[in-house]
Amino acid sequence: MNARRNTPFLSLEGLKLLIVEDEPAVAFLVEDMLQDLGCTAVWHASTVKEALDILREHKPDVAVLDVNLRDELAYPVAEKLDAMEIPFIFATGYGRKGIPADWLIKPVVQKPFDAETLRDALNIVLSRREQADGLERAKRDAKDRERM
């Protein structure tokens, strides 16, 4: 719990978000929670295909992924998101135990969860991206300096 305080708080204001979730009621809940947190546009997919179709057209800022979508697992979407460098978290009834070790680097929120837990998990991936961007920027700056 102390980790919460140590995570720099990043605003979700204006972020565009993708929800991949096959239970409509749960999708609405996540949508409401995120709207309360300031996210603006939201795409909703309930199958892997729908999610991949959305990702072909759009580039969300962040995504929330349910793992079990009826008869399929959401990992192809996770791979696509990773390839597009879009930060995302898993939301699943299984909790961390149900996620393969390869993916445990991503935050996992266990259903049911509250808005605070969701916000904290999103904050973790967004701040990681910030750090990565910062690192990229630092590298670029260093290169620029070399050129000068």
Binding site: E23, A25, V26, F28, L29, D32, N68, T92, G93, Y94, G95, K97, G98, Q110, K111, P112, F113
Partner: peptide, 23 residues
Amino acid sequence: DELNHRVKNTLATVQSVAAQTLR
């Protein structure tokens, strides 16, 4: 695991339905 997953999903659904209704 499947049972636990379903229980969790059901609780999340109840949470959502209640939240929508109460909102």
